[in-house]
């Protein structure tokens, strides 16, 4: 009888320690996973700020680009039609060779193309470009002009593209 009891006691000896160690390990694992989740959420925050800064800046740049379009609609259309002909290998030989092309000049203002860093201070933007696209260009009918701002806040950030479409009506000259 005693021999049997002694064997049982020996087999369960140290079980409390094992159980507590198991519980402590489980708690540590839970704590570690909590800390891991927390550290991941912290790394997301700067990205949120960066995205908001990019959104707001792009909106302002699109407005400036729209001001240019409204100021020089004829120059924009002439530049676009010349570019369409320039991109056509059949029509290109008959064209005068401009470098940069009229459309490249239209896209090339410092404020619209990362050339005026002082205007963006205190923000530091790695790179951005602004381009115009004439989406429908049947002569002397309704058009849709698209203003695209491609913006990269830092070297490692993804390039974010913002599009603003404007309906425009050209009136036939009489």
């Amino acid at each position: 009888m005693n021999r049997f009891s002694g064997q049982t006691t020996r087999s369960t000896r140290g079980m409390a320690l094992v159980i507590v160690l198991a519980i402590a390990t489980a708690l540590l694992v839970m704590g570690a996973s909590y800390l891991s989740t927390f550290s991941q959420s912290r790394s997301v925050n700067p990205k949120i700020l960066e995205k908001v800064q990019a959104d707001l800046l792009a909106t302002g740049l699109q407005k400036i680009a729209l001001l240019k379009f409204k100021r020089f609609p004829e120059d924009f259309y002439h530049s676009c039609f010349f570019q369409f002909a320039w991109d056509d290998p059949v029509k290109r030989p008959a064209l005068f060779n401009y470098s940069p092309t009229p459309l490249e000049v239209f896209h090339g203002d410092p404020i619209l193309r990362n050339g005026d860093a002082a205007a963006l201070l205190p923000l530091s933007v790695f790179n951005y470009t602004t381009t115009y696209r004439l989406l429908s260009h049947r002569a002397y009918t309704r058009d849709s002009v698209e203003i695209l701002v491609a913006l990269q806040m830092t070297r490692t950030s993804p390039v974010q593209t913002y599009a603003l479409k404007v309906d425009a009506t050209r009136i036939t000259e009489r």
């Binding site: 707001l56 302002g60 407005k63 963006l120 205190p122």
Partner: peptide, 10 residues
């Protein structure tokens, strides 16, 4: 936190 943008008079 800070941001920069532009308003335009049309």
């Amino acid at each position: 936190v800070e941001a920069v943008s532009f308003a335009v008079d049309f």
